[in-house]
Simulated scan of single mutants.
Amino acid sequence: MKTLKKVLFAAATLAFFGTGAQAQQIDGKAIFEANCKACHSITEDVVGPALKDVDKRHDQKWINSFVKNSQKMVQAGDKQAVALFEKFNKVPMPSFESSLKDEDIEAVVAYIKTESEAPVTVAATPPTTPADPKNATPTEVKSSFDLKSLPATVFLVLLIGVFLFALVVLFLVMTFISMLPVLGSYYNRPENAHLPMAKLVGLLRGDSKAIVGEHKDVLIEDHSYDGIHEFDNDLPPWWKYSFYATIIFGIVYLLHYHVFETGKLQTAEYNVEMEQAALLSANEISDPNAVTNYKVLTDAPAIESGKTIFAQNCAACHGKEGEGTVGPNLTDEYWLHGGDVNDIFKTIKFGVTSKGMVAWDKKLSKDQTLQVASYILSLQGTKPANAKAPQGEKYEPKK
């Protein structure tokens, strides 16, 4: 009987403490999701660092102080606090000194510790069943020409043919070179000197007149200055032909672009490319430059849903009433990234990583993002207490 009482007492004690520990984990998870999830993840850096194994990197006392007022520790010169502040773009962590107690922070750390020690689940790939050879579809074989795959006799005949062709070309070249003196004597005659073939033969024999022209070395009278003499020499043919080519090109360009207008000038090409880019962007949902034409939601259920999502995800950085803490004030007329509902929608969806704004496209649906954007616009002019100073440019609605 005594043994039974001891067993029951031990079981009750274990159940009591186990339930308490589980309650602490549940409370820690709830506190984490309400206050920390917007800027932190267990395994990945977001606005702030990944929190996995944070209990191994810092002691509990340091964590409590940092969560309550991180900027106080930074200003005091704490090396770890300063290093975190510098690493994450000097985005200050909101102060939780008035909202979280030591017990709450310890519960969050306990939850993070549990999540850090949890085994990583890997999705199991279903086993592949061997395919039935009778039903298997033949795979497409890409044909490609390979000399090594040719039969030896064909390869040998091909090699002999290439060799004979090279011999014939070499024979013709040598014959032409050997005949250059005869051709030179023929084309050097005055009646043949103007022929194009005469210039080609002369060029092959080393006469460069066809390219650089002929130097007459005729001194122009009264054209000597400071020991510099001017000769009456023709321009090199290569220069003259290039100049003629530019004249022809200029005429064709003028007719093509300015007379017949069959070609687009740079401004027209730019406008066409921008229109094409806008069309492509409009079809790409994940493109921040995609054109959107959302309208502000005004019905009460949508605004209430946006308010709930805002409180869960945005209040940590923008304040419960949109007054601004780490992030800017959302209740005035000044905006950093545009005050239209489409601008706010894109800012929420894609974030601004350089300013510490998280991208919510993977966590919020399109409808939820539009609800939050509409709720933010409903806060205009509410003038909450302790509102942050205006930032950005004043937004003027388009009429």
Rank of each mutant, 00 (worst) to 15 (best):
P130F: 07
N69P: 01
P94F: 09
S224P: 03
N289W: 07
F345H: 10
T114D: 12
P237F: 05
K363R: 13
K61C: 04
V341R: 06
A387D: 07
L14Y: 13
I63M: 13
K320P: 01
V122W: 14
K346E: 03
G48T: 06
Q371I: 05
V67F: 08
A110Q: 12
V82I: 11
A131G: 11
A311F: 02
L84H: 11
T308D: 05
D332R: 08
F32G: 00
E103D: 08
E269I: 15
A373S: 03
V252R: 02
N283I: 08
G339C: 04
A193P: 04
D53Q: 15
H337L: 01
N192E: 14
S242M: 08
K264S: 11
M174H: 11
P301H: 01
D222I: 04
K134N: 02
I248V: 15
A131T: 11
D226A: 15
N329L: 08
A166W: 03
D102V: 01
G206E: 06
D102H: 07
D102C: 04
A118N: 13
F243H: 01
A302V: 00
Y111E: 01
D55A: 14
N289P: 00
E304W: 09
M357V: 13
L280E: 09
K142L: 08
S70M: 06
A76S: 06
M179A: 07
Q24M: 12
T325P: 00
L200T: 14
Q60K: 15
Q80M: 05
V162G: 10
A12L: 12
F260D: 02
G77P: 00
N342L: 08
F165T: 00
K79Y: 07
T125P: 02
L156H: 06
K307M: 01
K87S: 09
D287V: 01
A81R: 09
Y334C: 00
T13Q: 02
A290D: 03
F32E: 06
S305N: 14
S70L: 09
K398R: 11
P49E: 15
K72A: 02
N135K: 10
T139M: 13
G356S: 10
T246V: 08
A311P: 04
